[in-house]
Amino acid sequence: MSDSKQRLLKSRLSLKTIINDWMIVFLFIVLVALSSLNPNFRTTTNIMNILRQASFVAIIAMGEFFVILIGHMDMSITSIINIVSIFFAGFVVNNGIPMGLSFIIVLLMSVFIGIINGLLVVYGKVPSFIATLVVMNILKGLSYIYSGGLPISGLPSSFGKLALGRLGVIPYAVILMIVVAVILYVYTEHTAIGRSFYAVGGNSEASKLSGINTNFVIILAFVLCAILSSIGALGLTSKTLSGNVTLGDNILFDVMTICVLGGTSLSGGRGRVVGVVIGALFLQVISNIMVILGVNTYLQWVVKGLILIVVVLIDSRSKKE
């Protein structure tokens, strides 16, 4: 039995997750190299900073992970983040709705958006790329109409603890990321419904004919993606204590990069939550290095673009084997 288990791990490690292993090693080397070069880098504070900066994007990426895992794509996360950010701030600041209640409202909103995405894909038979692109634009319109495009600031400073507070040395954000990751790890790899995501991504027709409610699984993936995006959105909002309609505008690219770096197969059926978290940390370390080296923002985009394409190339190579 433990033998089989080992073989299982081996067979899973065989293709995609090699990238993960390789990445962990690379991450480690980079960290060691940096800390020997730059003593500031080694400090607990700095490491915690990297973790903290990565945490909300990691949570959002774990959402997109579900959609990619079932072989689809969710473009609407940028707008979900924006609309959640602006509505939450609006509810609290303009309407005086308590934060807890506002949180519940935006969460329900994201569930609704996820369901719409899922329904379009499942029953409308719209390719997910297009369906979520349309939803993205509609949400964008709505959030601009709501706010006139202006940020809504003035959230209570207690809300800022989400992004900046810490328990001992560990930021709340990091704790939140770890909790989410652990829950989702158990959910994807040790529950029946979690297994269904892999099955549907691997072969949705065969899954359907095995009695899996594939429609439900697909809709659920979009809903989870929307929920996790909105949790991430609140985290990002708490950093500046203001709602912003452009908060998520550049995030989709990072999220995709993280998922792919983390070994999620773009054709669906393969990937792990743990990989996504590692991918997020990896990308954050790269960003920090670039900042330390004084690379300007535009050049950072170029570098990140190159990273994504290299990983995708490695991925499609390994698939041919």
Binding site: N203, A206, G211
Partner: peptide
């Protein structure tokens, strides 16, 4: 196209239904 899920191991295919 309707029977197997190639990306899953044998035991996961078997317990699927």
């Amino acid at each position: 196209s309707e029977g197997i899920i190639t990306t899953l191991p044998i035991f996961e295919n078997i317990s699927l239904p």
